[in-house]
Design a protein around this nucleic acid. Structure first.
Lengths: 173, 173
DNA sequence: GAAGATTGACTGATCAATCTTG
DNA sequence: CAAGATTGATCAGTCAATCTTC
């Protein structure tokens, strides 16, 4: 049985009909952004599983490696680019290596580091998936006008800058 | 995409058969939205852990229950509002119940369903956390002008509608 | 049969601790 | 000591199967 068969009639943002005043606007903005992202992410995860038998983190790792320099990336660099922890990368890389989609080499000049590269099969698998994935995303946004998409892109850029600034303030007071 | 071995006529696949590959901007929009959300979520998760020793899913469940009717919510209703699977809710509720933040009752009239409510302690804990949480979010967006926040909120609403429309098309062709 | 909930196997994510190398 | 990577414990999340009740 599919637990998530019926799309939710109510989500976190919609359910926030009545929060106390204060910084309610920012909170509503955040909840709407989160709801939007969660919807898209859930759809893409489901389709990746149904149509390719894979998952989003695996797809992401292949995507990072595909657009990386041919010599590959270290696990640490992957960790930073994918914005996940180091330990997470270790396990993910191990699974992909076991399936022959990725290969690791010792980095010359630094015997602590490992460099990860796509194998031929990994590259082929990813290429087969990425075009379809791109079309899914386009389909999800198709009811949004080009002008709205452009405006949204720009505003998200500013939002990201605002968040990064806050994080910088946090660690350098 | 594989032109030859066309799988059975799923609507999604038909739609992406004729993709003229100009969808890079939708992909960039999605990746930026995801990055923005991930940044904020990571910050909030970290602060919840550091300052309150709790996690985002726990906080979310308490938040849903706090603004729910006094008789509480069923696990299924929580599942829909939090946009996570039923099985996930079961475990989460069990952990919160074990700590005395939440209590469950049989629903009268339907012996399949369980109703979840905040305990007094759960309500007190959540109230202590939620104001601070709201301030965190406001702080993260503080470099964004009120006009930009309003515009972003509106555009995210349209984006969400577009995604929901695509999901509806998917299951009712 | 359908719906609410639970369970089990699994992937994935985090942190804290550790090992190795620089 | 610092940095790269790995390990172990724990929490979350999914799906698929199952049980009970409607």
């Amino acid at each position: 049985m599919d637990d998530l068969a019926a799309p939710p009639a109510v989500d976190a943002e919609t359910a926030l009909a009545d929060v106390p005043a204060g910084h309610k606007d920012e909170l509503r903005l955040w909840l709407r952004m989160l709801a939007c992202t969660t919807l898209i992410e859930g759809c893409i995860r489901r389709r990746l599983r149904e149509q390719f038998g894979t998952t989003l983190p695996r797809f992401d790792m292949l995507a990072q490696l595909e657009r990386a320099p041919p010599e590959g990336l270290t696990l640490g660099e992957l960790s930073r680019r994918m914005m996940v922890s180091n330990g997470n990368i270790t396990g993910l890389a191990a699974r992909l290596e076991a399936e022959g989609l990725v290969e690791r080499r010792a980095m010359q000049g630094d015997r602590r580091a490992q460099v990860l590269r796509l194998t031929l099969r990994g590259r082929r698998d990813f290429r087969r998936q990425s075009g379809v994935h791109e079309a899914w995303v386009a389909e999800l946004f198709q009811d949004l006008s080009a002008a709205d998409r452009a405006a949204l892109f720009r505003l998200l850029g500013r939002a990201k800058a605002s968040v990064r600034a806050a994080l910088d303030r946090e660690e350098a007071p």
